[in-house]
Structure formats: C-alpha cells, structure tokens
Nucleic acid binder design. Structure first.
Lengths: 205, 205
DNA sequence: ATGTATACGTACCGATCGGTAACACTGTCA
DNA sequence: TGACAGTGTTACCGATCGGTACGTATACAT
C-alpha cells in the first residue's frame, strides 16, 4: 500500500491529469453554454476550448454532440425534480400549498437577470424532430410533470382534475417562455397568483 | 398592346424568368422551412434549392439570412393579427367572448398533426441574444399582445386587469409550447376552458 | 523493466455554413 | 435601338461544423 500522496492523487500538474475527470468539466461547460445560448448555437470546439480539454476527450466520454446535449438534459431533469420535490416536501399532504410554493419560486426565477427559460422546453423547440436524443429526454420530463400536476389537481378535489392539472402546466410553460421573452417585470411574475386563482375557480365547480 | 400571353406573363421557360418574383418564392419557402424545422436548422442553400432559385437571388432581395428570418416573422406578425382581429370582430364589445373565440381556435390549431407552436416564440428561443433582427420582431409582437390582452381584461371589468391579462398570456404561450411538445391530446386542448375559468375567477374579485 | 490500459494532444477530414464576384441572358419600356 | 432591372450561371471565399486517425504520456501491476 502506498505511503501517501495518492488517496486523492496528485493535484494535477501541467498535463497528464487527475481524476476530476475531463467528462465532468465538459458537461459543466456544456450545461452552462447550452442553457444560456442554446444547443444549436454552440459548437463542440467552443465547449472543449472553454473546458480546457481537447475534442477527442469529448468524444471519448460522449458518442456525439446530440448525446452530450441529452446528458445535459438528463442532469437538468434531476435538478428540476429536486426543486419540485423540495416544494412538495415543504407542505406534506397539501397539494395546493405545494403548487403555490413551487410556482412562487418559478415566478422569482423568471425575474432574474440572466433567466433563459426551461432547458427542456428550449431543447424541444430547437429540435422538433421526433426521436432526437435531446427531445426524447425533454418529452419524458414533460410527460411526467403533466402526470404529477394532474394527480395533484385531483388530490386537491378539483371537479375536473385533469383539466386543472393541464391548466397549471400551461401557466408554467407560459412562465418559462415569458420569462425569457419579457425579462423582469413580465407576465411570468404573476404565475403563482394566476395559478391560485385558477385553482380556486376549479375547486368551486 | 400585346395580343395575348402576357397578362400573366409567359409561363416561365427554362431560364431567364418571369415576374412571379424570386423574392416571393424565397420568402414562401423560407417561411415553411423556418416554421417547421426552425431557423437555425435551415441553411440558405436548402432554401434556394427548394425555391428553385440561386443564392445571389436571395442576397439581392435580402441583406442576410438573419434579415430573411426577420422578414418571415414580419409576415407571420401580420397573419397573427389577422387571426386575432377576426376573433375580436366576431364579438364586438364583448372582450370575454373575443378571448374565448380566439383561444378556441388556438386550442384547435395546437391539436393539428404538423403543429409547431408560434413562430415568434420559437424564434425568440432560438435567438436569445438581444438585438438580433428576428428577436426584435418577436419581442415587439409579444409586447403588443400583452398590451391588448391587458386592455381586454380591464374592459371585462376584472378586479386586477393587468394580472388577468398576464394570466391569459401565460396560458396562450403555454398552449403554443405544449402543442408542439405533447401533440394531439396534450394540455393545450384545454386552453380555452382554463382561460374562461380564470376569467370567471378574476371577475368575481 | 516491461506490458497493458487509459487518457491525452496534434493534426486532420469532408461537409456545410453564410456570403460574394463576375458575367450572360431576358423582357420591358423609352 | 439601347439602357435598365432582374434573373440566372459558375465559381469561389474563409470560417466553422461534427467527427476521427494516430501517436504520446502516464499509472499501475507484474
């Protein structure tokens, strides 16, 4: 067994690097660039340049740019559900409060200076072709979101839970888009208010 | 005055063509391709090929691809307001019925097989950079839509007209996006119903 | 010391990107 | 007849696209 210096191996000298992994740096950079500027707008050359790696390194970790984009979205998916579940867990057994908490945070995020909408939604717009790796991830995320919103609407006791769930989804998607279209002060800031109004109206039916 | 054959001038022999105008053919093809597949996804070579013209012809009528995209959107803008005003004019003095008529048609359109959302919205997603010619047209269209929706909400007598107007805009944008994400049977089909519910709730305040 | 596996970099590929130069042809109108 | 506007043709530009062939450097086990 080695004496020292290798449980976290060599801080990384000039080249011949250390386990922090090129793949992680690539994905981090890609995530940032893809989200802020769009997937089609960013070339692999720029990704590797900003990540401080070379192109073959990218293609050793990812079979293609399309699959790199899909990886970015799979990570986005995880973080999305983290945020969603955080709102859910903050109000156990109270779906209306869960929705309100989630949408309040969405509304706040849409008002931030560099807000660029939902990475999933944007990717689906960029890749309309069915079966594209990025779009597949995006569609799965949205299907699941719809399923959960409808279930929550039913749990609230709405007369027509499916319709209310879909209405909430429309408001959310509208907030994502409006956030990047109008910036701060845009319609997205009222998403939580409007959602609560819609819920109120749907429960009274 | 010519004897015949020129009120609609010469069916267009092999080359050296007739007035049908290259610019119009180019814009028609670009419009179709840009809408269905996205602006970034389509190259100028494919546009001129499908239009049966050559690249110099394109650049004689349009200073750049970006400006061609902007022209496409300006035409889209005109047709959008045609549809909008059609719904408005069908119900003079009754903004709630106007909104309902417009959204019923939007809901129907989102269920059509080749539906690809709103060209304006999609362009803004594709070009996040401020000042891009395509984005400028898109933003102007959305600003005006917001202004009119808010005015209509106020005219309905809503307690908070601005919030209701923004809520309607969120639902509309959500329908555009959901329409292309989910296809037929998706949440967009309920946009008119949800909008009416939201209006009802906002008037009672 | 040497083999092996892994990760890396240099250099390059053909294709396509948006855009242009230069010139020939046609129909219209004066 | 002659000027003009608009089109077509061919050929080309430099830049960038996504992707790869191939040699090199390191780490570890034998």
């Amino acid at each position: 067994m080695p004496t020292d210096k290798n449980i976290e191996p060599t801080i990384n000298n000039g080249h011949a690097s250390a386990p922090p992994k090129a793949a992680k740096k690539i994905l981090d950079v890609a995530r940032d660039l893809f989200y802020r500027q769009g997937i089609r707008a960013i070339g692999v050359d720029e990704i590797v340049r900003r990540a401080g790696v070379t192109k073959p390194s990218l293609y050793r970790s990812f079979p293609s740019k399309d699959e790199l984009a899909a990886s970015y979205l799979r990570q986005y998916d995880l973080e999305f559900w983290d945020r969603f579940d955080e709102a859910v867990n903050a109000h156990p057994g109270d779906p209306r409060a869960q929705i309100k908490a989630f949408l309040t945070r969405v509304g706040k995020r849409t008002q931030m200076p560099q807000y660029r909408g939902c990475g999933m939604t944007n990717a689906a717009v960029e890749y309309p072709e069915h079966g594209h790796p990025a779009r597949v991830v995006s569609e799965a995320n949205k299907q699941e979101l719809r399923r959960r919103l409808r279930a929550m609407a039913v749990a609230m006791g709405a007369g027509d839970g499916d319709t209310l769930g879909d209405g909430l989804l429309l408001l959310i998607e509208g907030a994502y888009i409006s956030g990047q279209l109008f910036g701060a002060g845009g319609p997205a800031q009222s998403v939580a208010t409007n959602a609560d109004l819609l819920i109120e109206a749907s429960l009274k039916k």
